[in-house]
Amino acid sequence: MKQALLFLLLTGCAALMPARALQLLDDRGVSVSFSQSPQRIVSLLPSLTESVCAMDQCQRLVGVDRYSNYPASVRRLPVLGGGLDPNIEGIVALRPDVVLLATSSRASQRLESLGIKVVALEPKSHADVRRVLKKIGVLLDIPEALGAARLWRVIDTSVSAAAQSLSPKARNVRVYFEVNRGPYAAGESSFIGETLTRLGVRNVVPASLGPFPRLNPEFVVRANPDVIMVGSRSMQAMASYPGWGSIKAVREQRICVFGVDEADVVVRPGPRMAEAARLMAKCLEDKAR
């Protein structure tokens, strides 16, 4: 009751004072200022699109990149190329108040020179997701208690719940997570690795190797993981690596393949991280039997 009142009060205030200036330091270290919270937003990164929508501000999005496919409502929006090859003209034509993109995108300078405000954010770890949510909350002018902090609390408790749901047998395993064919692995320091750590399982790829190292396949044979998780793009099921037959996970068929939609959830550092943790927990529990 108290919270509902607070919410009414706050939203009422926000409606009464639409022109509140705000300032934001983005991940490039550039300070961007707005005379009021942007109402027309273009997002060129799927995880940022999801973050905006997670704050119930989906209606402010006027355009997205071609990889943004969640929630379903963003699929109706104009598609403005990809983060690496955005359709600058299309973006300008939409007259957005701000463009959200990754720091690696080359579009920032071009858009800024055309007089469009740009906020570059790059979530790479759990801490980054929290920070990015906070910044998007500031940008959207959503009180922290109702936006970023609430979302993060939900994510955090859901991940903990997923971890607690695991039986001791499912938790006591060593996991190898293959992000892509190469083999490129998700190490302990990647956000996928962080989720695995939160779930209480051990990752066979130590943090010292970096977030997504390209491994020698025999490293995995030597590490002998109990469970292997792969995205379907890695094609583990179709073309295994030579000599992997002896790995415990392969021998006992303990391989989880995440389909295209599931892989989107698992590999995106955004508000659906809790769902990713649940997917991984489900895999661990299934394969523990």
């Binding site: 990889y67 892509n180 064919r181 190469g182 490129y184 390209r214 793009r233």
Partner: peptide, 13 residues
């Protein structure tokens, strides 16, 4: 590659 960025890494290898 541009349309399916998930395969970029594997393609690079």
């Amino acid at each position: 590659l541009l349309l399916t960025p998930e395969i970029m890494q594997a393609m690079q290898s």
